[in-house]
């Protein structure tokens, strides 16, 4: 699917709406009765992602994470737990790091988001992206986008005074491969450069 021109967004959204509508009908609205209007009609949301404006219509249940991955096809932001417990879905919302899985897309009309796809500038990797490569801060790479976005937030907040401080303030990002040692080194390196 083409990446995010407003037009392709709309057609994509329509497909998704029809899909969700079908699922809801088969599920027969199991218990909730008449409160399905948001599902059937969708809610318009317009937001800026990595400097680019998007206007979409989403099912009210869509998380910010699913909006990015499914509606905008920005699949760099990963889904680990979908419960706020791993940090793989970390993005910057109006400049601050958050878990995109635990918030509804419809709550962010007018918001500005930065995802891993938006960190590099003019073909140059962000210093923290470079530091991750330099220090070999990943193995499978599943957690990496979340680690880097969280690290950018951590550096901005000024919580990189020591390895211990970085460990505490990066604790919202789990790495099942256990690359922590090098992740801390990468954040430390980028923090020094900034």
């Amino acid at each position: 699917m083409a990446q995010g021109t407003p037009e392709s967004d709309r057609s994509l959204t329509l497909t998704r709406r029809q899909f969700v509508g079908a699922v809801t009908t088969t599920a027969g609205l199991a218990t909730t009765g008449g409160s399905a209007s948001a599902t059937e009609d969708g809610v318009p949301v317009s937001l800026t992602v990595n400097g680019k404006h998007h206007a979409v219509v989403v099912d009210a249940r869509t998380s910010l994470l699913d909006l990015l991955r499914e509606d905008l096809q920005l699949t760099g932001t990963h889904k680990g737990c979908d419960q706020g417990a791993c940090g793989a879905c970390t993005v910057l919302l109006d400049g601050r790091r958050i878990n995109s899985c635990l918030t509804l897309a419809v709550m962010h009309d007018g918001a500005e988001l930065t995802t891993i796809e938006g960190l590099a500038e003019g073909g140059e990797l962000h210093p923290l992206q470079r530091a991750f490569i330099d220090t070999d801060a990943f193995q499978c790479g599943y957690c990496t986008a979340g680690q880097i976005m969280s690290g950018v937030g951590c550096i901005r907040e000024g919580h990189c005074g020591s390895g211990t401080e970085i460990r505490e303030w990066m604790s919202g990002n789990i790495c099942r491969c256990g690359a922590y040692q090098n992740i801390v080194a990468a954040v430390q390196q980028a923090a020094k450069e900034s």
Binding site: G34, Q83, G84, L104
Partner: peptide, 22 residues
């Protein structure tokens, strides 16, 4: 408000509000 309890529990279908007020 922040959604960090409510969205989680709605996804688990522990919470099933018919109307959500932001």
């Amino acid at each position: 408000a922040g959604g960090t309890t409510l969205v989680d529990l709605m996804r688990e279908t522990v919470e099933r509000p018919g109307k959500v007020v932001d």
